[in-house]
Simulated assay, not measured.
Amino acid sequence: MPTSAEIAFTTENARSSMVTLTDAAGAPVDGAMRSDGSSWIPNAQLKYSTRYTAKVAAIGADGKETAKTVTFTTMDRPGGFASVSSQLGDDRVYGVGMPVVVNFGRDVHQDHRANVEKRLFVASEPVQEGVWHWFNGHEVHYRPREYWKAGTKLSIRLATGGLPFGGGSYGAADVTVRASIGDKFVMTIDNATKTMSVTRNDQVVKTMPVSLGKPSAPSSSGNMIVMVKNEWEWFDSSSYGVPVDSTDGYRTRVSWPQRLTWGGQYIHAAPWSVGDQGRRNVSHGCTNISMGNADWLWHQTRIGDPVIVKGTERGLDWGDGWTDWNRSWEEYVKGSALPRPANPTGPSAGPSGAPSDGSAQTGPVRLAAVLAAPRRTW
């Protein structure tokens, strides 16, 4: 049995039910029901090569208990592990557009993605609807329907320790993260006016002139996210196949860079183009602003803040950065490996911490077979 085992059961005519799980030494294992009531999940990965006993007790309308127990032994420690990591860190504050980015050290096989997705839990306070989207076999993102509400608290559990990924690969460990969302801080860049409008909580706080990509290297239009911030970086055209000593080559130390795409588009200070900012586009695709504006902006933004660029000659390529907001909600949900619930009540179907309660009915309690295995959804 994988160490990602869950306890699944069904009842009839039960007023309430309860699951207890103990290891070979009789030590209790903490856990909780999924919010949809489909199974009970341990709060942490089970141990390898260990015998467990699960008991499910159901109480009927007459107060009488019906119980079933099952014992199982978890598998030996496997040889093929895949790392699991998140771009979010504990006690960090992010922008309202921040997706939950999860990376796997090996590709999750197509026929295992639904089962893996069911073990990725995001809880938000206040509750906001959201969904997972697979960009490829080794990267899956989670975003809410709308931007996160300012001040949201996030609790994330990637319950992947011992979970089969396919091809003899298993998740190396569980990952937990607690983070929060800051103010709604949005930058909107308009090529028609060559200006950036900066808003905080929907109020304009600053406007500034910009210079975007010249016709031979246009900036991308679309919905982007600040992914990386550094006080300075070396920008080197040779990393994109353009020799430094060529007509269009360069190697420049750039101040206050904020990365928007993996292809190399940034917002950054460009004192050499101040005379062009607000008038014409002369960059290699980045958003050029003055040294003073770049300094101010860099000290206001967070990773995850949205950047919206409008009216340039090219659109944003899907996957060139955290492009989660560049598709409608209807299109985004198609990237999930799971069917959408008819009435979603929260970010994901995570453990609720509450017992499984049902309406009291007449008749004897029936308790169906107890299963100790990951539940696969197809």
Results as ranks from 00 to 15, higher is better:
residue 229 K to I: 11
residue 254 V to Y: 05
residue 188 T to I: 12
residue 115 N to D: 10
residue 206 K to N: 13
residue 248 D to C: 00
residue 203 Q to E: 15
residue 132 W to L: 09
residue 311 G to M: 12
residue 40 W to A: 02
residue 311 G to R: 01
residue 343 N to Y: 13
residue 325 W to L: 03
residue 28 P to D: 10
residue 7 I to Q: 06
residue 187 M to P: 00
residue 155 S to N: 13
residue 67 A to I: 02
residue 159 A to G: 11
residue 301 T to D: 03
residue 179 A to I: 01
residue 159 A to Q: 02
residue 315 G to W: 09
residue 216 S to G: 13
residue 94 Y to K: 02
residue 316 L to Q: 10
residue 127 V to E: 14
residue 252 T to H: 13
residue 178 R to T: 14
residue 69 T to A: 14
residue 5 A to P: 05
residue 307 V to H: 07
residue 191 N to I: 04
residue 174 D to W: 05
residue 72 F to K: 04
residue 6 E to C: 07
residue 296 W to P: 11
residue 295 D to K: 15
residue 282 V to K: 06
residue 26 G to M: 00
residue 22 T to V: 15
residue 108 V to E: 06
residue 256 W to M: 14
residue 218 P to G: 11
residue 166 G to Q: 04
residue 217 A to V: 08
residue 208 M to N: 03
residue 315 G to Y: 04
residue 105 G to L: 11
residue 105 G to I: 03
residue 130 G to D: 07
residue 241 G to F: 14
residue 151 G to T: 05
residue 47 K to V: 02
residue 65 E to K: 12
residue 119 R to Q: 09
residue 265 Q to M: 15
residue 321 G to S: 08
residue 55 K to C: 07
residue 317 D to R: 13
residue 48 Y to D: 07
residue 337 A to P: 07
residue 127 V to M: 12
residue 95 G to A: 05
residue 72 F to W: 14
residue 282 V to G: 11
residue 237 S to D: 10
residue 363 G to Q: 10
residue 164 P to Q: 05
residue 83 S to C: 06
residue 309 V to R: 02
residue 22 T to M: 09
residue 138 H to Q: 14
residue 250 Y to E: 06
residue 313 E to W: 05
residue 23 D to E: 01
residue 75 M to L: 12
residue 198 V to C: 08
residue 334 K to Q: 14
residue 262 W to A: 12
residue 35 S to P: 01
residue 323 T to C: 03
residue 39 S to T: 00
residue 244 V to R: 15
residue 374 P to G: 05
residue 70 V to T: 13
residue 79 G to R: 03
residue 91 D to Q: 13
residue 81 F to W: 15
residue 317 D to P: 01
residue 344 P to A: 06
residue 233 E to V: 15
residue 195 T to R: 15
residue 355 P to K: 09
residue 199 T to H: 01
residue 302 R to H: 15
residue 349 A to E: 13
residue 59 I to R: 06
residue 60 G to W: 01
residue 196 M to C: 14
residue 254 V to K: 14
residue 291 M to E: 14
residue 135 F to Y: 15
residue 277 Q to Y: 06
residue 324 D to N: 05
residue 228 V to R: 13
residue 148 W to T: 00
residue 120 L to V: 01
residue 109 H to N: 09
residue 327 R to D: 08
residue 154 L to Y: 07
residue 365 V to E: 00
residue 86 S to K: 04
residue 294 A to N: 05
residue 49 S to Q: 04
residue 111 D to M: 03
residue 85 S to N: 12
residue 244 V to T: 11
residue 171 G to E: 04
residue 161 G to E: 10
residue 306 P to A: 11
residue 84 V to N: 09
residue 292 G to Y: 09
residue 331 E to T: 03
residue 73 T to G: 03
residue 121 F to I: 01
residue 172 A to W: 04
residue 15 R to N: 10
residue 145 R to D: 02
residue 257 P to I: 12
residue 121 F to Y: 07
residue 222 G to Y: 07
residue 97 G to H: 01
residue 261 T to N: 08
residue 30 D to Q: 10
residue 201 N to W: 06
residue 166 G to T: 08
residue 288 N to Y: 13
residue 323 T to D: 00
residue 231 E to G: 15
residue 117 E to P: 00
residue 208 M to A: 14
residue 32 A to N: 10
residue 164 P to V: 02
residue 330 E to W: 05
residue 366 R to H: 14
residue 151 G to K: 01
residue 38 S to M: 06
residue 95 G to D: 08
residue 225 I to A: 03
residue 374 P to K: 00
residue 187 M to W: 09
residue 26 G to P: 00
residue 307 V to P: 08
